[in-house]
Design a binder for these strands. Structure first.
Lengths: 248, 248
DNA sequence: GTCATCGATTGATCTAGGTCAAGGGCTTTG
DNA sequence: CAAAGCCCTTGACCTAGATCAATCGATGAC
């Protein structure tokens, strides 16, 4: 796998990710223009909740910069992350009017939004936008199911390695690898958020990260800055059959 | 919640579920007719694999009767069920040409199929079919994410209760509850398949079912026939916040 | 400069669920 | 009807990860 393979085809031009990833892969210019007219930006601070599960959600959006999470919670407080939104990811449920999960900004966040109503009208008027949405939803479904394998069957160490691989791959899509072939990135999540992602406790996350560091699978500068000297080794630790998979 | 609430609006007429659930909620008669012309039936025996992950899959289909499962496997044999197909469920990935999971018939199975190519053309020609597909895929995504909460955060007992609740609800959609308000159904899965669904071992499944029986949450006639005297009690054991959720 | 606060680490201990092993009904086959 | 498979149950034990608790920086407030 080369660095080129990691580059999502969608991020090579323009300023607003939604143009490429979500909607406009095959847009004619006049449709693009209508989208441009519809879009607006919103910012959120780290920690801020964007919508609560069950709330009315009258927009769809694409993450421009920053990280957000989708989480589900039980009455007693147990929480499970069910989606991780990285830059260029899409959020929103055309055809549904309430949110099914809590959406929370875990870093400062910039989102490119469209009011849902006109977006849906545009979807109906421009069938291939609907097709694109279907494709993206299928991607999300694949990611969710890969994640289910992780939650149900992987060990704590494999879970951590999987998460690191996902973030490394997504991050490498934006930057290039260092000259020596090392992958370098910052963890966008606290230990607690990682635990909620992986179905673990934050203590176990901390221990396993320490273990991977001790065993030379990763290097750590500070608490968040990670260097992966050998990505294949990391994939191996993750127990991933497919090196491609896991779209998130 | 009444029994009426449990009835999917889609199963009240006709002989072929795909007509209702998957595609034709708003079909005009000529489109319906074209679909009728396209469809064909396939049968599989219990235990038979329908497609292997990675194989070419040149059809989409809807389950008419019987049960099928979607599973993912690691090289060392650990397996996780990622989807459960009950009658009227749709399977297939318009726009993708290979299967992402193993699809296996766990009982004798009758499916109503459409060759993928003409189905996709129909989808393009009839936008609201695409919309319906998007809606169904969003439902599946919701189910997958509910399932993630189960896998990541629920105890073994809660997992079992959740699964029983899902099957009971789906089964009750087809039959009515017994006069005394009890729900009665047959488990469509072996203990092993339940374990693969829930991220447990078959021994733990067996023990927890025994425990629920001992505690009067369920009654068992034989190994598979289940009576639920009090559905709310079961939901309570499942730890479900929403009594609605979990579409599968 | 001191005191909170927040995230992270690390240790000690406990336990839910996994693992290994031995039957116990069933159905199917010859 | 014996033999062989399945599928399921139950018991005895073990371990991965949870829980409880102490400590350690950073960072920021006053």
């Amino acid at each position: 796998m080369t660095v080129q393979d990691l580059l999502p085809s969608s991020l090579d031009c323009g300023d607003c990710p939604i143009r490429h990833r979500a909607v406009c892969a095959r847009c004619e210019s006049d449709e693009l223009k209508r989208l441009e007219e519809m879009k607006y930006y919103k910012t959120y601070e780290a920690g801020q909740t964007i919508v609560w599960s069950g709330d009315r959600m009258d927009f769809v959006a694409s993450v421009v910069s920053g990280i957000a999470t989708l989480t589900q919670t039980m009455e007693d407080g147990r929480t499970q992350m069910v989606g991780l939104l990285l830059p260029s990811d899409f959020v929103g449920r055309p055809g549904r009017d309430t949110a099914a999960y809590n959406v929370t900004a875990t870093t400062d966040l910039l989102m490119c939004c469209f009011r849902k109503k006109p977006f849906e009208e545009m979807m109906i008027a421009t069938p291939h936008i609907g097709q694109r949405l279907l494709e993206m939803t299928l991607d999300e479904l694949d990611a969710a199911r890969e994640w289910m394998l992780l939650l149900g069957r992987k060990t704590a160490r494999e879970k951590i390695a999987s998460l690191l691989a996902i973030v490394a791959r997504r991050d490498a899509s934006l930057k290039l690898k260092s000259p020596e072939g090392k992958m370098v990135f910052d963890l966008p999540l606290t230990r607690e958020a990682m635990a909620d992602y992986l179905g673990l406790t934050l203590e176990t996350v901390s221990r396993q990260i320490s273990a991977l560091k001790r065993d030379g699978v990763i290097e750590l500068q500070g608490k968040r800055h990670v260097t992966v000297p050998d990505f294949d080794r990391l994939l191996d630790e993750a127990g991933d059959d497919s090196d491609g998979g896991f779209l998130v």
